[in-house]
């Protein structure tokens, strides 16, 4: 029987260029190598948001991923799945104001609870435009907020929700939504109730802030940030309440095991790492080519019969 199978495997039907011999081999035990993405590079495996080309305040449709990589379809992150589907409020991360002259004034229309993030979202209107920003602790409908990119010699006296460059603010100000590189859009400190504090000026036109994790970052003084502490302060001290509620939030059941070494049950008390100076990295534009190889490297008996 075995010999007969091997003889069959040798047989090939040729139709144009395509040999059909491969089909006769064992498909069941064939392994296809699939490359999975590295986690922790700022890519979310919870949902994809379907962004339109132009900015809009219309809540956007999402596709929930359940921890899967959308390209390969393989599970990448465990513990995500299910939950209530929320529409996504597209936040305008870039607060751009005039670089000289009086600041741009905007009015808060409404504070909205967003299902896709922990902090609340504020709907803001100015001229004939609407946009969402992250709401601060005491922000309410009707508030006027200012935005300016000008760095004066004497620090400004800011109100909550105003956006200024880091260099324009006095030492000790609480800020959030801080840009990492000038013009990038605020990408540090988004979680409910968090804030960073401006600690001191640093040489080379940099400003040092302490992050919520007590780490110190030195950022360029032209990086924009929003003043104040983020809304929904009680979020971190509010228990989820029940396992079912956690499922509604889109998290799958945990094992419940005490995992000492993983770092998820608290960090070791160590000296904080040294000051990290953020500098724009040079972009590596060199192209990476992927070489393919269709045939097996070694001719073994097995491959001889199959190919």
């Amino acid at each position: 029987m075995n010999c007969l199978t091997k003889e069959f495997a040798k047989l090939t039907f040729r139709c144009g260029q395509y040999p059909f011999s491969k089909i006769l081999g064992g498909v069941r035990y064939k392994i296809r190598y699939v490359e999975k993405p590295q986690i922790g590079n700022g890519k979310s495996f919870r949902r994809i948001v379907h962004y339109p080309t132009d900015y809009t305040v219309k809540p956007l449709n999402v596709t929930n991923l359940g921890g899967r990589d959308p390209k390969s379809g393989r599970l990448v992150v465990k513990g995500i799945g299910g939950g209530i589907k929320h529409k996504y409020h597209w936040i305008d991360w870039k607060r751009v104001g005039p670089s000289e002259g009086p600041p741009q004034v905007e009015r808060v229309i409404k504070i909205i609870k967003d299902g896709c993030r922990t902090a609340f979202v504020a709907l803001v209107a100015y001229e004939d435009k609407l946009k969402y920003i992250l709401a601060t602790e005491n922000m309410k409908a009707g508030d006027l907020i200012r935005t300016s990119c000008y760095i004066p010699r004497i620090p400004v006296r800011p109100n909550e929700g105003d956006a200024y460059p880091l260099g324009a603010l006095p030492v000790g100000t609480q800020v959030h939504c801080v840009e990492m590189y000038p013009g990038m859009g605020g990408n540090l400190i988004h979680a409910a109730g968090t804030y960073a504090t401006i600690v001191r000026k640093a040489p080379d036109n940099h400003v040092v802030i302490t992050m919520p994790s007590k780490r110190e970052f030195s950022l360029p003084a032209t990086c924009m940030c929003t003043v104040g502490r983020l809304s929904n302060v009680e979020h971190s001290s509010t228990p989820i309440g029940s396992a079912q509620k956690n499922r509604e939030l889109g998290n799958r059941p945990r094992s419940g095991l005490w995992q000492r070494k993983k770092g998820i049950h608290g960090r070791k008390l160590r000296k904080p790492p040294p000051l990290r100076t953020i500098k724009a990295l040079e972009k590596d534009n060199t192209e990476t080519i992927v070489l393919t190889c269709d045939r097996p490297f070694v001719k073994t008996l097995y491959t001889q019969f199959r190919y």
């Binding site: 190598y33 060199t286 192209e287 990476t288 080519i289 992927v290 070489l291 393919t292 190889c293 097996p296 490297f297 070694v298």
Partner: peptide, 14 residues
């Protein structure tokens, strides 16, 4: 070889 190829098969153009 196959395993090694996966890593070394990706090359940056000099």
């Amino acid at each position: 070889f196959t395993k090694h190829w996966r890593v070394q098969g990706k090359r940056k153009l000099l």
